[in-house]
């Protein structure tokens, strides 16, 4: 197995292969499956992503069972259609897709976790823009997902991808970094540029906490995916333009892990701190669950505990 991003970059560069091809070869070896089956399975994941984004941004859109969130992807679609945007139609396409996907997730629709459900909108947001701008074929879209998974696997094995262990930096931060790296690959960048884009995207989101209102995956999760997508695209552009992160990608992952361990429990998917602890956040929780359901786990040292 590839253990570091440096390992991926060195091998890909030496073999003149894209990183997506390295991870496909590893998957074939470890799963005892054929390339065709693995490719088709990733294709199904892509289909689910496309369907979720479409569902969330067409017609009336979708609303969550709590009524707290929903139907905002549709608002964004209308705003885009009117043509007078500040950040431009390309960027807002990512915004719309990211919101639509996470609105579908919050409404208990079917999504593909990338790498998690709470961060499921980030990669589709990036991919929707690339598909349009670079006129990607279906196979190139699937290649994007393989490349993203190679980077995600290293984060997951070296640090964490759960809000409960690392905060939102581990979810949307990881998704954004994966998306940035994969965007560089499908845009024709080098493996080293992929790693730079990854490192910049993750560095930008270090410290992002997980503070979901009422313990739901709605506020602020849905719009944090927007930040993930937009950050990924801008970092991919920076890398393609030749900008570098100075701190290597593997060291950024280690920093993310340490920051995650240092975050207090209240900011790691307990719904006890941050926005969840604002007067409005608490009121929403009371309204939905009819009582104050929080319990207070003992704060213990994290030493010796795994992620």
């Amino acid at each position: 197995m590839y253990e570091t991003i440096a390992d991926l970059v060195t091998t890909a560069t030496a073999q003149h292969q894209p990183i997506s091809e390295l991870i496909i070869a590893q998957e074939i070896k470890l799963s005892h499956s054929s390339r065709e089956i693995i490719w088709a399975t990733m294709g199904k994941n892509l289909d689910v992503m496309i369907a979720a984004a479409k569902k969330g941004s067409s017609g009336q859109g979708v609303q969550s069972a709590t009524g707290l969130t929903g139907r905002e992807a549709v608002l964004m679609a209308k705003y885009r259609a009117a043509g007078k945007t500040l950040s431009g139609d390309t960027m807002l396409r990512a915004v719309e897709t990211a919101i639509a996907t996470n609105e579908v997730n919050a409404s208990m629709g079917i999504i593909c976790a990338t790498p998690t459900a709470g961060s499921a909108g980030t990669l589709p947001g990036v991919l929707s823009v690339l598909t349009e701008r670079l006129d990607l074929t279906r196979n190139q879209q699937i290649q994007f997902l393989f490349c993203a998974s190679a980077f995600g696997m290293i984060v997951a094995n070296h640090a964490m991808i759960a809000g409960a262990t690392g905060g939102c930096q581990a979810e949307v931060g990881s998704a954004s970094a994966m998306g940035a790296a994969a965007a560089v690959e499908v845009a024709g960048g080098t493996p080293q540029q992929c790693a730079e884009a990854f490192a910049m995207a993750m560095s930008n989101l270090l410290g992002l906490v997980c503070d979901p209102v009422a313990g739901l995956v709605e506020i602020p999760c849905i719009k944090r995916n927007v930040v993930g997508s937009v950050n990924a695209l801008t970092c991919a552009d920076m890398a393609l333009a030749g900008l570098t992160n100075k701190i290597p990608a593997d060291e950024v992952i280690s920093a993310m892990k340490r920051i995650g361990q240092d975050l207090p429990t209240s900011l790691r998917e307990t719904g006890l701190g941050g926005l969840a602890a604002t007067p409005t956040g608490i009121e929403m929780k009371m309204k939905i669950f009819g009582e104050d359901v929080s319990i207070h786990a003992e704060e213990g040292p994290d030493e010796g505990r795994e992620n």
């Binding site: 208990m108 593909c112 990338t114 499921a120 991808i161 409960a164």
Partner: peptide, 16 residues
């Protein structure tokens, strides 16, 4: 597996 990272296909709201 790559499908531990891209996947699973699921009903929301949280993968964990």
């Amino acid at each position: 597996s790559v499908f531990d990272i891209i996947g699973p296909i699921m009903i929301g709201p949280s993968s964990s």
